[in-house]
Design a protein around this nucleic acid. Structure first.
Lengths: 248, 248
DNA sequence: CGCGAGCTTGACGTTGTTCAACTAGAGTGG
DNA sequence: CCACTCTAGTTGAACAACGTCAAGCTCGCG
């Protein structure tokens, strides 16, 4: 347990992979979401598998805590998690949603890098912690892996860049449209989709208050752009939403 | 000129390095700002030097244009440049200032990656373009270089992350305080510092209108937090500014 | 001296937040 | 099975934050 700096309870933590036998990471890391590892050789993958810890989180639990030092990368396998910044002006800001597969690399390789965000479970989450030391070793073994990691950083930067621009320059309807389109096209990928987030959380994705979010959502509903019944949202007129998103 | 996809005029472009003889990049890339290359071996550095193009830009000229495909990394050597997003709601948003040394890596290694921002010269700027192909070759040669590049991405992400949070959750005084502190501590590193930006540009760094920026600046002046005479700004009470920044 | 561009200031309108009241639904205990 | 409570969601009205518009100012420059 030396390299696991995060503190887990006995129930959460298992040395053996909880989720699958044998080929676990090979299939997990090989999936769509795990592009980072897609070109690793079998021995390298096996090395990763043997050195990781698998952990399960209940809804609401904190997976990585803001302002702590990073020492692991976290590979998500199942469930929904949110990445957010805590409590500036008593407001949170949700930057990213992870559904099933996804990787958080913050601060590996960088000494004393303090994580600027919290990651917490929205539904039950299964994920694996891998020491950044092990990742470093792969650098020597596999040149392509370094490129994959840079691609990962690049994608992350791009996403953050878009979020930055969307949230700073657009008016509320544009921001709400962005949030809805993001959830449908990037996260859930189906049209009437079930949202596991509260209005409060949806508002935190859109950088506004829950009241404002509700109001805009209602406008969209009365304009027949979306249908919304409780936790379900259906996009009726995607073109119009995109138009609203572009025009701010 | 094969690998230079950007279009330069004859005056701007030279195959020989304009700025220095012989050891050019060795000293340039070796400086503080150029940490990316700090651990390259001499032969590798020489290879970079021989494959680059040095370019000079006049104030106002565009160095990299938003929505074009990336194929070079750009190493800044001298002058001040701004990185910004163009025209959403007729507003620009300045994300970053480069003074003298700095590197823009957007989208190298990633096929068909479209640059989401424009970089343009504020003062006269001297910089070098290096094909991403050459960078790729260094990956094989030098493992440490890949790590340096990832560190660079990491720093960039972190900076963007802070900007994102600052601009979305804080009120105007906090945003102005951030801009002033950023310019003093990260860019100019001296106390009465000369700002080569117009009020409009300062406002675009703080995500507000120039009128709002001027108003907040005046408040800071009457509260004796700063002294400001035209293009010069002096921070008198940094503690208080930091306080304002933290409290939003 | 006059011109023009950028800076500054004030009045006003819009956007978005706060606060408070109300509603609906889910769990709890009698 | 029905009150009761608690929380999330919704709505409206007052208010603050911020932008827009227009006018005046400063200062460099011809």
């Amino acid at each position: 347990m030396v390299f696991v700096k995060e503190n887990f309870t006995e129930q959460q933590l298992d040395k053996q992979c909880l989720f699958c036998k044998d080929d676990c990471c090979v299939s997990c890391f090989g999936r769509d979401g795990g592009l980072l590892f897609r070109k690793l050789s079998r021995p390298d993958l096996d090395q990763l598998v043997s050195s990781k810890y698998s952990v399960r989180f209940k809804p609401g639990e904190t997976i990585l805590k803001q302002n702590t030092i990073s020492s692991n990368i976290v590979c998500f396998r199942k469930g929904i998690a949110k990445v957010y910044v805590e409590g500036i002006n008593d407001k949170n800001l949700i930057l990213k949603v992870i559904k099933d597969t996804g990787i958080i690399t913050s601060g590996i390789l960088i000494n004393n890098s303090i994580r600027p965000y919290t990651v917490s479970a929205v539904t039950e989450v299964e994920c694996c912690f891998i020491s950044s030391d092990k990742i470093m070793e792969l650098f020597s073994a596999d040149r392509q892996f370094a490129i994959s990691l840079i691609e990962h950083y690049h994608d992350m930067s791009n996403h953050m860049f878009n979020t930055l621009v969307n949230l700073t320059v657009k008016y509320m309807p544009g921001r709400v449209a962005d949030t809805i389109l993001y959830l449908k096209n990037d996260i859930f990928r189906e049209n009437p989709f079930m949202v596991p987030f509260s209005r409060q959380e949806l508002a935190e994705m859109s950088a506004m208050t829950k009241e404002s979010f509700v109001r805009i959502l209602k406008e969209f509903k009365t304009s027949k752009l979306i249908k919304s019944d409780g936790k379900y949202i259906e996009i009726l007129d995607e073109e119009a939403l995109i138009e609203i998103s572009i025009n701010g």
